[in-house]
Design a protein around this nucleic acid. Sequence first.
DNA 1: GCACAGGTAGATT
DNA 2: AATCTACCTGTG
Length: 309
Amino acid sequence: MTRSGSSKISSGWQPLAGWSPTPDVLRETLDGGQAFRWTLEPGAAATPPRCLWTGNWSTHCVQLRAGGSGLQWRGTPATTSADLCRYLAHDLDWTALTNSLPWRSDAHLAHCIAAFPDLRILRQPFGETLLGFLCSATKQIVQIKQMVALLAERHGSPILSRSALRAPHSASACRLPTWPELATIPEKDLRACLLGFRARYIAETAKFLAARPGWLDETEALPYPAAKARLMELPGVGEKVADCVLLFGAGKLEAFPVDTWVLKSLARRYGLDGWKPAQVAHFGRTHFGPLAGLAQQYLFSWERKFGGR
DNA sequence: GCACAGGTAGATT
DNA sequence: AATCTACCTGTG
């Protein structure tokens, strides 16, 4: 695995009021398939009483510590509390959002929510989320993390900090290559990052974006249906990837990605055996409503942890 | 050795 | 329009 970059972190621990996930739910949020750049520090247990996570997004490197008295964080000097709050979508009232899901008339959903209290949907940088999910086709989280780590390590610029400059030999985290940077990388170098056939998707998407400055930002700003249609113009982006990018990287909570776990969940718990992904997506949107993506995350987490196989 | 893994796209029916 | 299949490659 890659270097954690924890030695660059110079500021002290600060409390993060307003979110007190259990270590287990923290793990599910950071490392349950939404994001691919969080690692549990060696020596820290994944379970109570304490755990320590290091993560990167954009030019930020942050550590989160849970257990005992709530959540604490510290990060690179340039990382503000506002940066972290945006990433964690901390400005939304997640209790109220979850409460407005149709759990009163849906016993299984109620069960999933109870199993993962305070679960959140992250608000990651749009472009990085696209990159992560372009890597995701028929791969498990561990392998996606491996690909993304190699991309950052080999093709991303180091995340600078005062402490890193003072200690040049210490490990330093790297940011993910930006799309303009990706457009300059030969496909064979991308393949060398264990991407396989996904390398072509990334190379072609990078070329597409390089020819259209502002396209990604405009897409992020569009309403969900238009944004999804635009994303699906990109090579390697189908329904599922587009929905993941919009849910985890644009705050579009109506996006309802249907992957194999959600397919299993709806087949097993809702009797939708044999339904096609598109049919399941339609059911999900109508049954779960405007926050279907949040419901999806509860179902997904439950199925993966308790559903078996 | 071989199936399978958090899909997509192009061909075939 | 619905249903196959190839696409890379590490893992068990």
